[in-house]
Amino acid sequence: MDLYLKARKLAQERAQQIIDGIKPDEYFVENDECKETIYLLSDPEQRTILLKKFDQNEKQKAVASLRSYIRWKRRRRIIRNSSKIAAILVLVIGIAITFYSPSPTNLQTREPDGYLTPGKPQATLILANGQEIKLDRELELKEKNTAILNKKSGEVVYTPDSGNVEIQQYNTIKVPRYGEYSVVLSDGSRIKLNSESELRYPVVFTGEQREVYLKGEAYMEISKDQKPFIVHAYDTRIKVYGTSFDVNSYNPDEIRIVLVQGKVGIHHSKMQEVILYPNQLARVSEKEGIVVKENINVNYYIAWQEGYFAFEEERLEDIMTTLSRWYRMKVIFENPQLKDIRFTASVQKEENISKLLNQFELTRTVSFNIIENQIFIK
């Protein structure tokens, strides 16, 4: 068996070991064939030859092969392990480099404390009277016969009493860059807001329908009720029928809705309502209307609210834009053509971003130079 096949076989086996919870050192010590393959890959000439053979198209085939090879019991485990499994893009060359080289990659970095740090739960609550409250501690408030409890975990909860409320008053929660926050509305619906997002909502829902107004991105789990739930995202209106879904409105010119469970109806301008079903994605724009994509892997779109960033065949520019909302960093493309390179990978939101950049660098298609909070891509 040549080195190419050995390396590919090793990557598949190691992926299964990851799922089974076996640590790398245990696997490498007990597997003689693994140790032999890694030893061969420790030779720079062998790695160069293999990289030339394993071109970009072949890398993508390997990704597909690996996905077919592993029979996942739970979809979420795909996301939680994909940051390690994504190394298949360059086989297990990264493993060899890690074990035999002083530094894992050529990533140049001068990264003092305080730079490139991940975000944290943080938000500001704006009450109906305009008062702004920073949600940085546990606190209890009372507004319109409703108890408002802010938790240390990064969630504010509305609990109405049994009294009737005739006048509807609104609160707004704003999440800054490098933050995220959750709110449990008075009807029990739970909404998690991503960085640079805000939600305007009633303290208590009155009238014939429940309506909220979103800017940015939110993952919503809407409680079932006789009153329909309406999400306004600029010119797009989403009618919810008791469901779980993600709305991304960072770009007002193209709203993205991904449905996890249930059913939603999408309205835009004078267009006819479009019904979205589980595992479907809708893109809404003035130019193209409502375009629906079926049979998507929703986990890549909702991973952010589970503590991960996951990317499937996404442009590098879009990946870095997403990451820059969470990590304290600035991105500079020295070679604009690199913006369109596509990658499949994921990273825990609490991890150092260098781990993800290392994966990209192993493809030999891009390199990163980190100076303080700036990432130069060339």
Rank of each mutant, 00 (worst) to 15 (best):
163 G>I: 08
219 Y>F: 15
206 T>I: 09
227 K>I: 05
26 E>S: 15
43 D>P: 09
234 Y>D: 15
280 Q>E: 14
55 D>R: 09
372 E>D: 15
344 T>S: 15
239 K>F: 02
265 G>P: 08
190 R>I: 10
205 F>N: 04
138 E>D: 15
51 L>W: 03
133 I>E: 04
281 L>K: 15
84 K>G: 01
245 F>Q: 10
199 L>Q: 05
336 P>G: 07
39 Y>T: 14
301 Y>K: 03
282 A>W: 00
106 N>R: 13
374 Q>P: 04
25 D>K: 14
357 L>K: 00
323 L>S: 05
127 L>G: 05
178 Y>D: 02
151 K>L: 13
222 I>P: 01
58 E>Q: 15
341 I>E: 13
252 P>M: 07
289 G>E: 11
14 R>S: 12
300 Y>C: 03
298 V>F: 10
349 K>T: 04
24 P>D: 14
329 M>C: 05
201 Y>Q: 07
209 Q>H: 12
175 V>P: 05
351 E>L: 01
20 D>C: 09
58 E>Y: 11
75 R>M: 08
255 I>F: 08
279 N>F: 10
339 K>I: 04
155 E>Q: 13
21 G>W: 02
251 N>C: 14
118 P>G: 06
358 N>G: 01
368 F>S: 00
196 E>G: 01
118 P>L: 04
332 I>V: 13
244 S>C: 11
101 S>G: 07
301 Y>W: 08
285 S>Y: 05
367 S>H: 15
118 P>K: 04
125 L>H: 00
63 V>H: 06
223 S>Y: 06
295 N>G: 08
368 F>G: 00
202 P>T: 06
72 W>K: 05
254 E>A: 13
219 Y>I: 02
196 E>I: 13
278 P>D: 07
327 Y>T: 01
215 K>L: 04
346 S>P: 06
36 E>S: 11
9 K>D: 13
71 R>M: 06
288 E>H: 13
361 E>N: 02
326 W>V: 02
242 G>Q: 04
75 R>S: 12
244 S>I: 06
285 S>L: 06
228 P>R: 08
287 K>E: 14
348 Q>D: 00
121 P>M: 12
139 L>I: 14
157 V>G: 03
112 P>G: 03
345 A>D: 01
30 E>N: 15
259 L>V: 10
289 G>A: 12
92 V>E: 14
354 S>A: 04
354 S>R: 00
224 K>C: 11
282 A>Y: 04
178 Y>F: 15
183 V>E: 03
148 I>C: 03
364 R>C: 08
214 L>Q: 10
134 K>I: 13
254 E>P: 03
226 Q>L: 11
21 G>P: 09
19 I>Q: 03
156 V>M: 11
365 T>K: 14
133 I>G: 01
181 Y>L: 03
273 E>Y: 05
219 Y>T: 04
308 Y>S: 01
200 R>L: 12
248 N>H: 05
62 A>M: 14
213 Y>R: 11
225 D>L: 06
205 F>V: 09
326 W>N: 02
292 V>T: 14
104 P>L: 11
306 E>G: 12
314 E>S: 06
64 A>N: 14
131 Q>C: 07
79 I>N: 00
271 M>W: 06
302 I>Y: 12
355 K>S: 00
256 R>H: 12
205 F>D: 02
15 A>H: 03
120 K>E: 11
129 N>M: 09
313 E>L: 06
315 R>P: 02
149 L>T: 12
89 L>A: 10
297 N>I: 11
369 N>L: 12
70 I>G: 00
